[in-house]
Amino acid sequence: MDTNQGRVYFALDGDNFDPDEVTKFIGIEPTSIMRKGSKAGGKLPKKSSWTVSTENVVNEYIDVFDMATEIINVLKPKKDLIIQAIAKFKVKPRLEVVLWFSVNEEHSTPAIGFETETVSFLGEIGAFIDIDTYKH
């Protein structure tokens, strides 16, 4: 691939919870779910997860600021329910950034950062940020 690619997602991860119950509890339809021990892409997941994700963006310019804000805007109205779900289902909240960098030197590298509102929301719910980067 000759251009940058990326996505941002929010996940609730844990050992023994039913992602469908999280969906009912929070009232947000996830982009995807995984169940511990079920075949997913040929692998057995070690944890269950409930995920809300942006679309995968393929572009010369990737803006993590905007993608993270998009996810937080979906979650903010349900903040109290998310905090309750973290305790009830014993899950860990995570904001994940996944980026593939073009090796084409004419392309800019992705803008990686987070708005104050995003950082505040993640702090309030006890989430951490993980950034994975890859070269094409």
Rank of each mutant, 00 (worst) to 15 (best):
N4D: 06
Y9G: 01
G14P: 04
N16E: 14
F17I: 06
D18H: 02
D18Q: 05
D20E: 14
F25G: 00
G27N: 02
I28K: 07
E29Y: 07
I33S: 09
R35T: 15
S38D: 13
K39E: 15
K39H: 10
K43S: 05
L44H: 08
S48L: 04
S49Y: 10
T51G: 01
V52N: 03
T54F: 05
E55N: 14
V57R: 11
Y61T: 12
Y61M: 08
I62H: 02
I62V: 13
V64A: 10
F65K: 03
M67K: 11
A68W: 00
E70W: 00
I71K: 00
I72S: 10
V74R: 14
V74F: 04
K76Y: 05
K79E: 15
K79S: 05
L81P: 00
K88C: 00
V91C: 08
K92F: 08
K92V: 09
R94C: 12
L95C: 12
V97C: 11
V98L: 09
F101H: 10
T109F: 01
A111K: 14
I112Q: 04
G113E: 07
G113Y: 07
T116S: 04
S120C: 01
F121H: 07
F121I: 07
F121N: 06
F121C: 03
G123L: 09
G123N: 13
E124Y: 01
E124A: 06
I125G: 03
G126R: 10
G126P: 08
G126M: 09
F128I: 14
I129N: 12
I131R: 13
Y134R: 12
K135H: 08
K135V: 06
